[in-house]
Structure formats: C-alpha cells, structure tokens
Amino acid sequence: MATQIITLVGVLIGALTSYLVTVTAERAKFRRTMATRWDERKLDTYIAYVSCVKEIHRAAMEAARARDNGEDAAEALARMEAKEDKRSVLFETFVLLADESAAAAAHTVNQRTWDLLTKARDASNGLHAMRAVTLVQALNTLHEAARKDLAITRTGPLG
C-alpha cells in the first residue's frame, strides 16, 4: 500500500510540474507574441508619422523655392496643409503607442513643424527663413528615441 501511495504522489508531482511548466511557457509565448504585435504597430506608426513630417518639410521648402523664383506657391502650400492634417491624426496614434522619451521627442518635432508651417504660410518668407527652422535636428532626436523604444541597435557608423 505504501508503494502505491508513493507512486501516486510521484505521478501527481509529475503532472503538477508538467502543468506548471506548460502554463509558464504558454504565458511567455503569449507575451512575446503581444510584444511583437505592438512593436510592429509602433514601427508602422513611427514610419508613417516621420514620413508625413518629411513631406510637410519638402512641400514647405518647395513653396519657399517657388516664392524665391517668383512663381506661384499655392500648389506646394496645399500639399503642405493636407499633410499637416494627416500628421495631426498620426500623432495621436504615435503618442498612444510610444514610450515617454519618443512621445516627448515627437512633441518637439510637432513644435518645429508648426514653426515651419507658420513661416511657410507667410508669403514674405523664402528658403532662407525655412532653413532657420531646426526640424531636422528634432527628427534626428526622434529617430534615436524610436530606435531605443523598439530596441533597435546600430551595428555600425552612419554613412
């Protein structure tokens, strides 16, 4: 009878151990899956936001260049305004998904973008005024924060 009890206890301990290991492994797998899912969503959002800001910058520079050449800047300004509307919407998703550092960097990018928009909307400003806005520096800071948030490491020098 004692051997049967010992065998039964051994079977129960084995079953319990197997169950706990399986549950732990499944939880870890679920967490990895969720982290990957959100990282993919973050990356897509970061790319869309930064691309939109770059398109605003490009359109503002085109408008300024047109003014400097005595041409009509209306088309470039219309593209710039449309992209600004899109950037505003993308920013909300960005802030929801980003960590604190990336969100703070995005707020700075927003401020620099607004500075650029203000200058671009002023018909008296040309390329010189546009170049005074430090948007590129703010974007570089955002890139660093986004890489850190996504745990992307650099393997070599920029070039």
Rank of each mutant, 00 (worst) to 15 (best):
A102P: 05
R41M: 04
E62L: 15
V50N: 10
V23L: 11
L96G: 14
T108Y: 00
A48M: 01
E26V: 02
I13D: 09
R41Y: 02
M34S: 03
E62G: 12
V89T: 08
L77S: 12
W114S: 13
I13G: 00
E92S: 12
L117E: 06
G14C: 01
M80Y: 08
K29T: 13
E55R: 14
K54W: 11
Y19P: 07
R65Y: 05
N69H: 14
G14L: 03
R37D: 09
A76K: 06
C52F: 00
L12Q: 01
F94G: 08
D44F: 01
D72P: 05
M80I: 06
G14A: 06
E84L: 14
A64S: 11
L16I: 09
E92D: 11
T17I: 08
A82N: 12
R31P: 00
L96C: 11
K83F: 04
T17G: 07
E92F: 10
M80C: 10
L16M: 09
A15F: 03
E92R: 13
E75V: 05
A98K: 12
A59T: 05
Y46L: 08
D44I: 05
R87L: 15
D72W: 01
R32C: 00
D44P: 02
D85W: 14
A76L: 09
L90F: 11
V109R: 04
M34W: 03
S88H: 13
K29A: 13
D68K: 08
S51N: 11
T113H: 00
Y46A: 05
A64T: 02
N110A: 05
H107L: 15
E26Y: 00
K86I: 11
Y19G: 02
A28S: 14
V50F: 03
I47T: 02
A104E: 11
S51D: 09
E40I: 01
A59C: 12
A28Y: 10
G14N: 03
H57V: 02
L117H: 04
R58I: 06
D68V: 03
S51P: 08
E81C: 12
E55S: 14
S101W: 11
D39V: 02
R79I: 02
Q111T: 03
A98M: 12
A105T: 03
T108N: 15
R87P: 06
M61A: 14
L90P: 03
E62M: 14
L12P: 00
K83M: 13
